[in-house]
Design a protein around this nucleic acid. Structure first.
Lengths: 148, 148
DNA sequence: CTTACTGCAAAAGGTTTGCAATATT
DNA sequence: AATATTGCAAACCTTTTGCAGTAAG
């Protein structure tokens, strides 16, 4: 079994939540489509092929739980739905940003931890303890620039 | 009249939209409560005191227009509603970030343009033309740290 | 065997829209 | 006078919730 899947299972079990079939199916969809930043409805569509009876409400509840357990973070690209991003459980860091193409909607992940200096500065100036950050860059991707 | 208000009026007129009483009232509420990052419903509450008949739909439509005209930007703090942030029309830059206290919900504005270096780097590596960015830092504000 | 979890359907937000009346240019 | 804008109510969409039945530990 995929190493990441195993780690996620552990987080759930170790926190005394039950490893139900439905949760496993949702996790499978999330891991297999990491790049896609799916929203609940899109996960529902995928998951129906595996278990026709799996309900939408169950997915909403699963996703909420996974966020609470630190397995996922929420991502808002302004389309009216919440999208989800798998957290790298090993580094336990949120050190990546998103490039969102305003033309085609593509989301590109950017690994970067260069915000740490800025964070330290902000913490000092504002007496604010930063625990996490979310950074989005909006613009045009390579393909959309070429096709315009 | 407030200089900022005058500038906003100009943007609306110059783009051939009508300077209606309702739009003026909404602008007034936005300018007078710049710090508060109001959502539509909160603006509705404020505005009702000025014009009891001003409808919620009108505010939604005004806010959409103002975003389109670059007068406002949308801000998502994860409470399920869209909040709004006045753009500094003179600098025409989006060079500020938000600190969001996860305990009391307070939003603190941080002036900073240190992301430009990072943006240039990202543009080069990913062939992505960045037009704007949104950056949120989540954590605990001074007061909430002291009261815990 | 206990109680957390699920599925369903209904409800609850927030936001959008159609239409007739109104106000701005 | 022409038409963009408004107010109202209904519609829409995403997300949440109550409850009875089911399954994981």
């Amino acid at each position: 079994m995929n190493q990441l899947v195993k780690e996620i299972y552990d987080v759930i079990s170790n926190n005394d939540y039950k490893l139900t079939n439905q949760r496993k199916i949702v996790i499978d969809a999330l891991v297999k489509n990491q790049e896609d930043h799916l929203n609940c409805d899109e996960i529902y569509d995928l998951v129906k092929n595996v278990d026709k009876n799996l309900g939408l409400a169950t997915i909403y509840r699963s996703l909420k739980l996974f966020v609470q357990l630190g397995i996922l973070t929420e991502l808002n690209i302004g389309d009216g739905s919440i999208r989800y991003d798998l957290v790298d459980l090993n580094t336990n860091s949120h050190n990546h940003h998103h490039l969102i193409c305003k033309s085609c909607g593509k989301i590109i992940e950017v690994k970067d931890d260069s915000l740490e200096t800025l964070e330290k500065e902000i913490e000092k100036i504002y007496d604010f303890k930063i625990e996490n950050h979310k950074c989005k860059f909006m613009g045009l991707c390579k393909e959309c620039i070429e096709n315009s």
